[in-house]
Design a protein around this nucleic acid. Structure first.
Length: 782
DNA sequence: AGATGTACCATTTTT
DNA sequence: TGGTACATCT
């Protein structure tokens, strides 16, 4: 059989394949032509990828450098490298296993001249990009308030994601007059004079290189005999175009490309990922073989069942039917609660109960839709003393102190690096204000020199006042010494000296804010990290990678993170709080992207559920404090999309059945007292703590007798049922006096369909569903 | 230049 | 509500 890759008589090869299921095995073995491995959540995708890569090598189908394996994150790249190294039994340095960006950087450095750059070009980060754009806009006399640099950059990045160079944007894409396009042109020009490019350029230039240079196309097509792509559903248009260019021969034959992905886990559409790429694979790569991995090894039956049923509501999919040999396990729990505070308390209680039963905190995670949602859990965990870690703060190299330190070095390496100059010239504070910097910038632009050189020239005139002059003179003097030492001093020592002598370290030592010590600590780590590299350039490219390693495993902790950050991870117990309309699915996502947005949100929900191995606990809340105002929340539609047979729903005592609209209204809900949650919990919702807690006491939370509250709710539900949804909003008009269970009396200010905006007497305007208020004169009913 | 005031806004994030 | 970017004051 032509396709059989692994001959059974070699022991190490059979070992490698043993334990693969038939689908995985054929994914590893199908080496001729294009292959799409549709790998559902928890089906052993990584294993297929690594085994395939190792198999190609061990069977002598290609030399290590003839294989191109691309991932999206450094973490994934490192994992792949390590696993392959283990299988093959040797180091993988110099191989083309890496992220799109690292590989593209490597290739681009070789051919930089062809796109007008020098091989040692620097890669700008977002901050620098924004600063550049802002400068351009200002030079063009554009009001940066009306057209914020962020927005312009977003459009430019979008164009780059789609593969449009500045001289190649199709007219149909140019919507904002010609301004953005013009800025794009100037921006690229500036980048070139700075000998820099941004992240988008790395990919775009690589594509352009292959597009415009037949010799390079031949070279790389010949070179990469096997191409493997991880997370194919996350590729954007340039990545796709680049891959296709590399893969398709002149007569349209597709070569050996193997893409691994899951359309149901495409959750990065908002940053350019094109789910269409994976959906179109068969058309794009003629003769493509599609192999589905459908046996899930991660989650127990009910969890998988619930997740599968949920994702089945999406239309944009190729479709897979995941199954498991594992037991049914626990049903997915759906818990409705009164408000965010009870939710946090509930999660804390549950978590401790699992912990008491022997589960490690490391095996638990709370997955939220948006970063701000971690706060209430952090507060609660702090209070009850549960150690936790929050994933997703600013990356190490994005931290202010690290970027400042790097800017110093950049300026030493490249005196013309004006962006670095501007960043550090007054950090620490040296008494150089905007006026002085403006002055320098103007001279630099007029004389067409770097700002540092401009300072030198201006120091020969009487342009500066004595104080400023003295400061600049001493800065230049120090700087010149650093540059002089550059060839002799080891780069770590130099970095230390620079940070010391510039007063940067002293600045943080003097700072009294609580995070100052951490920043000093980070600076020390920076020096350590630099020590591992020959020069700063290579350091910059690997910094995030190094830092991740440095972050050691400490004590047991619960993990708090966003659903996005959780992709690829798994836990025994997963909490999924905040399943409410507007929050999840996110309102903005729906508003901006309609059906597509909703489907991506649903995929996110699917990703969340499929992170759980044994237990998944979804929660939803009736009242949510959003941006400081209380909002009545409706359970997420995703809850009603979960089939009854896989879930076990319950609500906090005294709550109405929030999910009466769902497909499982009959018998789906139990009171807390009969549910398995701890007894104290049910108790606590009856006592006053829920209603007079710190969060409520702060503002306008009326201290109403709790019994009334509960009765009132029950009664209100009856009202809703009796009158129907459409009727209710018609009852009110602008200016009406109304009463709300929680917020008391107020006036209607705005009516938006079913939603009202009410100015309450106790202070504050709130958006409220019309169902939740009554006309003032009916308030007595409660 | 730095302190204080105020209006505004508010996902998801990797390289 | 709370953070931040910009304007105005000292």
């Amino acid at each position: 059989m032509q396709n059989a890759l692994i001959s059974t008589d070699d022991n190490y090869k059979t070992d490698m394949l043993s334990g693969l299921n038939p689908a995985q095995r054929s994914a590893v073995e199908a080496v001729d032509g294009p292959v799409l491995v549709l790998a559902g959540a928890g089906t052993g995708k990584t294993r297929v990828l690594t085994t395939r890569l190792a198999a190609i090598l061990l069977n002598g189908l290609a030399y290590p450098t003839q294989i191109l394996a691309v991932t999206f994150t450094n973490k994934a790249a490192r994992e792949l490298q390590e696993r392959v190294a283990a299988l093959v039994g040797g180091p993988v340095e110099g191989w083309f296993i890496g992220t799109f960006h690292s590989i593209c950087t490597r290739i681009l450095r070789k051919h930089a001249a062809r796109v007008g750059l020098k091989p040692n070009f620097t890669i700008l980060d977002t901050d620098d990009q924004l600063r550049l754009i802002k400068q351009i806009l200002e030079a063009e006399n554009v009001d940066t308030k009306k057209t914020p640099p962020r927005a312009v950059l977003a459009v430019i990045e979008r164009w780059k994601d789609r593969g449009y160079a500045s001289d190649n944007v199709p007219p149909s894409e140019v919507t904002q007059s010609g301004l953005y396009l013009k800025v794009y042109g100037i921006y690229q020009e500036r980048l070139r004079t700075l000998n820099a490019c941004d992240f988008g350029d790395l990919l775009l230039y690589n594509y352009v290189l292959l597009l415009n240079n037949e010799d390079l196309l031949q070279e790389y097509q010949h070179r990469f005999r096997y191409i493997l792509v991880d997370e194919y559903q996350d590729t954007n248009v340039v990545q796709y175009l680049w891959l296709r260019r590399l893969t398709l021969t002149r007569d349209g034959q597709a070569r050996n490309i193997c893409c691994v992905g899951d359309e149901d886990q495409s959750i990065y559409g908002w940053r350019g990922a094109e789910i269409g790429n994976i959906l179109r694979f068969e058309q794009d790569f003629p003769g493509a073989k599609i192999i589905r991995l459908e046996e899930n090894y991660r989650s127990s039956g009910h969890i998988l069942g619930a997740a599968s049923a949920l994702i089945a509501h999406n239309r944009d999919r190729l479709g897979k039917t995941l199954w498991t040999a594992a037991s049914e396990g626990d049903k997915v729990r759906v818990q409705s609660l009164w408000d965010g505070e009870s939710e946090a308390r509930f999660v804390g209680d549950e978590l401790e109960s699992f912990q008491r039963r022997g589960m490690s905190l490391n095996q638990m995670a709370v997955l939220v839709r948006a970063g701000f949602q971690t706060r209430e859990f952090e507060e609660r965990f702090l209070k009850i003393g549960v150690p936790y870690r929050v994933i997703g703060g600013p990356r190490f190299y994005e931290r202010q102190e690290i970027r400042d330190a790097i800017a110093y070095i950049r300026l030493i390496l490249v005196p013309e690096d004006d962006l670095a100059f501007e960043r550090i010239i007054n950090v620490p504070k040296r008494g150089l204000g905007t006026a002085t910097i403006q002055h320098i910038a103007i001279h630099a632009r007029e004389a067409k020199i770097g700002m540092l050189q401009a300072v030198r020239e201006l120091l020969n005139t009487d342009a500066f006042k004595p104080k400023v002059r003295a400061t600049l003179e001493s800065f230049i003097r120090a700087y010149d010494v650093w540059v002089q030492q550059l060839p002799d001093l080891p780069h770590t020592d130099l970095t230390e000296r620079v940070l010391e002598e510039s007063g940067y370290i002293a600045m943080w030592q003097a700072e009294k804010t609580p995070d100052a010590p951490t920043r000093l600590e980070n600076l020390k780590e920076l020096i350590n990290a630099i020590a591992e590299f020959d020069n700063l350039q290579s350091f910059m490219e690997h910094v995030s990678l190094v830092m991740e390693k440095a972050r050691g495993e400490e004590q047991e902790q619960v993990t708090l993170m966003t659903l996005h950050a959780a992709k690829g991870l798994e836990f025994d117990l997963v909490f999924l709080p905040g399943w409410e309309e507007e929050i999840f699915p996110s309102r903005r996502s729906l508003e901006e992207n309609g059906m597509k947005g909703l489907e991506e949100e649903r995929r996110l929900a699917y990703v969340g559920l499929t992170r759980a191995r044994e237990h998944a606990i979804i929660s939803t809340v009736a009242n949510r404090l959003v941006y400081g105002s209380w909002t009545n929340a409706i359970p997420s539609r995703f809850i009603s999309e979960l089939p009854a047979q896989h879930i076990e729903a319950s609500s906090e005592a005294g709550m109405f059945s929030t999910m009466n609209r769902g497909s499982y209204s009959e018998g789906g809900f139990r009171n807390m007292r009969s549910a398995s949650a701890p007894q104290e919990f049910a108790q606590s919702s009856y006592n006053a703590s829920s209603y007079k807690g710190a969060a409520f006491g702060k503002s306008n939370y009326p201290a109403r007798p709790k019994a009334n509250l509960i009765e009132g709710r029950a009664q209100r539900i009856d009202n809703v049922r009796g009158e129907g949804d459409e009727e209710t909003s018609r009852k009110f008009s602008k200016g009406d006096r109304v009463f709300h269970q929680k917020f008391g009396y107020g006036n209607v200010v705005v009516i938006e369909g079913e939603k009202l905006e009410v100015q309450f007497d106790m202070g504050g305007t709130k958006k409220i569903m019309a169902d939740f208020v009554v006309p003032e004169d009916l308030a007595g009913q409660f």
